[in-house]
Computed example of a mutant assay.
Amino acid sequence: MTAQKSVSEIMNTVIVKIDGNKSSEDAAMKMRAANTSSLIVVDSVGIPIGIITERDLVGRVIANDADSRRIMVKDIMASPVVTIDPRSSVESAADLMLQNSVHHLLVVENEDLSAVLGVVTTTDFANYLEGV
């Protein structure tokens, strides 16, 4: 039997942030530029307050034929963020995602949102499972 992996071993350490007062158009452009499907939404002092994903943009802006320049990120983001410690097991992270019906977890130490270490997504789990 293989040793249990921790969240820190599968998390993505590239963290792309956006201010909650930016437009959903800004979010889409930032996602494209960073080649990512989600952004960490931060308040005016840089503390994470939510997550916005391509799915949010499609479901809440495009599908409603809304003006992406007028829809603010803070109005369509998923919030509050769900966090996990980097030493937690991959299995614990999966359980936490299921319990909270989320697809992204912020990895932080001691629940300190001012220092995000990474993000764990369902894609990270898929990649992990391919290697098992």
Rank of each mutant, 00 (worst) to 15 (best):
T121N: 07
S37G: 15
A78D: 06
V45Q: 10
T53R: 05
R60C: 04
D112I: 09
I49T: 14
D124F: 00
A94W: 06
Y128P: 01
V132H: 12
S8I: 04
T121F: 08
V116D: 07
I18G: 04
G50I: 01
G20I: 04
S114H: 13
M1T: 13
V14W: 10
H104W: 09
T83R: 05
V108C: 13
S38I: 03
I47S: 11
I76F: 00
D75G: 03
G20F: 07
V73C: 00
V102P: 07
E25M: 09
E9Y: 09
S92W: 07
A126H: 13
I40P: 01
M97G: 04
M72D: 01
K30A: 10
K17W: 04
S8V: 06
S89M: 12
I84A: 02
N12Q: 07
A33F: 07
E109K: 13
V81N: 04
A28Q: 01
D124T: 03
I18S: 02
M97N: 08
I62G: 03
V132K: 14
R87V: 09
Q4I: 12
A94N: 03
G118P: 13
D67C: 00
D85F: 08
I15H: 13
G50K: 02
G131T: 15
V14Y: 11
F125W: 15
I10T: 08
T121C: 09
A78T: 14
K30N: 08
A93Q: 05
G50S: 07
K74C: 01
V45R: 10
I51T: 10
T122R: 07
T122A: 04
E25Y: 08
S44V: 10
N12D: 09
V61M: 00
R70S: 07
T53K: 06
V7R: 02
V82F: 02
A34Y: 09
L106K: 15
V81A: 05
R32E: 08
S24H: 02
K74E: 00
K74T: 01
L106C: 14
G20W: 04
V16Q: 13
N64W: 09
Q99A: 13
M77I: 02
E130R: 12
A126F: 15
S23P: 08
T83W: 01
Y128S: 01
N100G: 10
D124P: 05
V81I: 11
S6L: 14
E91C: 05
S68G: 05
S44I: 10
N100M: 14
L57P: 00
V16C: 11
E130Q: 11
T36A: 06
V61K: 00
V45G: 03
S8T: 03
S44A: 14
M77A: 05
D43E: 06
N21I: 06
D75C: 02
I84N: 03
L96M: 11
H103R: 15
M97A: 07
E25Q: 08
E111K: 10
G50C: 07
S79C: 01
I52N: 00
T123Q: 08
R87M: 11
I10V: 15
